Simulated assay, not measured.
Amino acid sequence: MTQRKEAPDWLQEQKEHWTRVARGRSRRDVLKGLGAAGMAGLAGCSGGSGGGATATATATEGSMDSGGEATTTDTATSTPAEVSGSMTIFHAGSLAPPFSEAEPQFEDEYGVDVNREPKGSVASTQKITQQGRRASVLGVSDFRLIRNRIVPDYGDWYAIFTTNSMSLQYREDSPGADEISKDNWWEILSRDDVTIGHADPAVDPGGYRAVMTQQLGKEEFEGSALYDDSTFQTIRENSTVPTGTETKLEGQLQSGALDYAFYYQSIASTSGLPYIDLQPQVDLSRATSKYAEHYAKAEVETSSGTFTGAPIAYGMTVPNVAPNPAAGAAWVEYFATDAGRSILENQGLVPVDPIVVPQSSRDAVPDRVMNVATAKSSLGPLEL
């Protein structure tokens, strides 16, 4: 019996688009094209380091998005604030590769000195909400941390700008590496001689999403589960949170301290180590109502809160305590341009084009961000 193919959702369409882009153009071609057109377009849109250009965004009132939702947009012409000085960015560890690649290009374009602090998204958020620290940008791998913990006391808005999925990474000499596949990974991981690592769920969404991935494998989806509760319990017994941050997982895999690690596909696909793309019912990649309902069956309790499964969506904001809000807004804007989206794609992420901001807070969004964004009340099944 042939299974009916599910209609593509907004995330899958983005992923397929950028996969085609990657296949059609080499990295050198991308950067060459951006050097001639992308960066010039960015300067013309945002005003560049001089901040004097005028940006115009045009859309139709009451237009419909791909999910059938009415969106309210209008024609806006504004001159964004001039950008200069320096800024600090608190951000997720999984954003370190694209943010590191973007940093020198952004600094050259805007004349801003960028200082970044990568850490788990929960811990990055707590720097603002619990430690009283200030940053001009907060970038997290789970936008809900901004929606639920930053807004409204520490910020007024956020933008969803990229997506990801969970994967399983290992070494070529990991126990069972010569046998493992997408169809049996749980059998390998439930063996006695296997050590599985993931980030700390209390400080990093990559950690609680790893546990969710394991949980979802035992939950029925379309009439069947990947494995039973006993296999799940064994996988959990074989799982550990290694010392160090989530960015240390690859090093501990290479050293042999870990045999397998659950982490983001963006990290796995750019690391040089072998990895497995997981089934969509466990990898948190599909933003449809059917998958979102399934993902919500997963729940992880931690010392920093309880987290429920949902499609992966990254968010950025300029907090109210930002020392340099103009530079922060320019950083968010940058990842809505061809240059920024290409960097995300180069680093294994799936850009959201255009970036999306909540309809309820669109009046608080800086002009230079609103000029390259669309405002919605939801994105697929995700409430904004």
Rank of each mutant, 00 (worst) to 15 (best):
F161T: 10
L168T: 05
G120C: 06
L168F: 02
S86N: 12
D178K: 04
I188N: 03
P152I: 09
F106R: 02
H91G: 09
T75D: 14
Y154G: 13
L189C: 11
S167C: 12
P205H: 02
G197W: 00
P104G: 09
W186K: 06
F99A: 04
T162M: 12
S136K: 07
Q105Y: 14
P175W: 10
G139C: 13
G93R: 11
M166Q: 14
V140E: 00
G206Y: 03
Q105H: 13
S94F: 01
T125N: 05
Y208M: 08
D108L: 14
T162C: 15
G111Y: 01
P118R: 03
D113F: 03
L168I: 06
T129A: 10
I146P: 12
I89W: 01
A123S: 07
N184E: 04
I180P: 13
L189V: 10
Q131L: 15
P175R: 08
Q126A: 12
Q169D: 07
K119W: 01
P152F: 04
V151G: 05
P98D: 10
S121A: 12
K182R: 14
G120H: 04
I196K: 00
T79L: 10
L95Q: 01
A123K: 00
E172N: 14
K119I: 11
A177C: 09
Q131F: 07
A159W: 02
I180T: 06
D183F: 00
W185H: 07
A96T: 09
P80A: 10
T77V: 15
G111A: 03
G111Q: 02
S124Q: 11
R147Q: 14
E117S: 15
M87D: 05
G206D: 11
E109Q: 09
Q126H: 09
G206N: 11
N164E: 14
I180F: 02
W157V: 10
K127W: 13
Q130R: 14
G139R: 05
N184P: 13
P104L: 06
L168W: 03
G155S: 04
E117N: 15
V114T: 05
E103L: 11
R133K: 15
R144I: 05
P201A: 05
N115T: 07
P175H: 05
L145A: 05
L189G: 12
Q105P: 04
F161L: 08
I128Q: 02
T75P: 13
S86A: 14
S84Q: 08
F143I: 04
D193C: 12
S181P: 06
T79I: 13
P175Q: 03
T79M: 13
S86L: 02
R147W: 14
L95D: 07
K182A: 15
W186I: 04
R171G: 11
G155N: 00
V122E: 04
Q105S: 09
A159E: 01
L145F: 04
A123Y: 11
W186Q: 11
M87G: 06
V140T: 06
T75L: 11
